[in-house]
Design a binder for these strands. Structure first.
Lengths: 142, 142
DNA sequence: TTAAATTGCTATGCCTGGGTAGCAATTATG
DNA sequence: CATAATTGCTACCCAGGCATAGCAATTTAA
């Protein structure tokens, strides 16, 4: 009923990096800032680095920064790099194809959400996301 | 992003039993009808039986039937018997509490769906479900 | 009475997501 | 130069969902 933690961690990290562009951040720093288990964060960062979403800088004072400009990284790419966006194509009953032939009572609620989420993922860059959450942060009604 | 297969199997089985009330069905029969792996179906049925949702009848010609009348079994009970309805209380990012303080861009799409699904689960009995899918089946627009 | 079909129950295995740990290579700092 | 801090990489562990297999007990049918 949700994204994997790996996806969540990745979105966290990349959103944080977008908010502090051009700053190189080490795994231990990100660990302290984002409260993600250090060792696992290491492996997530390695993976994102291999996939080009971030760039690793070795050596003392090394760390990671965005692999591209924040306006050029779409959220869908991040999900694709972790669990793959295909999760959204499985019906809520866990099958590729709805076992109730799309007439199950959850279907409309489910597809509506899926379409909205897909739309967000495919049309939001890290830069957009930054703006949208900034607006939200200034809204008391949370 | 979806219910576990165990939940899906359970909903399948119970919906099928509701559609053929008062008939005793063996695991191997249900396996053939619903295309659920036999051995795993056995363990699912055992579990549902222990939890009172179905009743086992031993011996040759034995099998299972609904543990209560179909109008008295709510879908929420079934989900609770398998993975627990709490899955719906985790945010889409996989946490108990949304790590973005409820301002993440998926939040409204997600909560809307969750509320709808919860409403369906808590207010639909197997009997209701039967009617709703019957209506849908007669609808060409699928 | 014997065999077949069934549930009740338990032990086991596989896979994946999540997580840990350590070593080599690299780089900056004292 | 020596040491500290870092990434790159690999091996490993654990839990849970999914799945299989087999044995005992029960009941029916031949």
């Amino acid at each position: 009923m949700n994204f994997t933690k790996t996806t969540s961690y990745s979105l966290h990290v990349l959103a944080y990096m977008a908010r502090h562009e051009n700053k190189i951040m080490s795994a231990s720093y990100l660990h302290r800032q984002l409260d993600i288990p250090y060792s696992y964060l290491r492996s997530v960062l390695l993976d994102l680095s291999r996939k080009g979403l971030i760039m690793g800088v070795k050596g003392r004072n090394g760390g990671f920064c965005l692999g591209r400009e924040k306006k050029d990284i779409y959220l869908s790419e991040i999900v694709n790099a972790t669990e793959g966006i295909d999760v959204l194509n499985k019906c809520i009953m866990g099958y590729e194809k709805c076992p109730f032939d799309n007439v199950c009572i959850f279907h409309s609620a489910w597809t509506r959400m899926r379409d909205e989420i897909l739309d967000i993922l495919e049309n939001t860059t890290l830069a957009d996301h930054l703006n949208s959450t900034d607006i939200s942060k200034s809204n008391i009604n949370q």
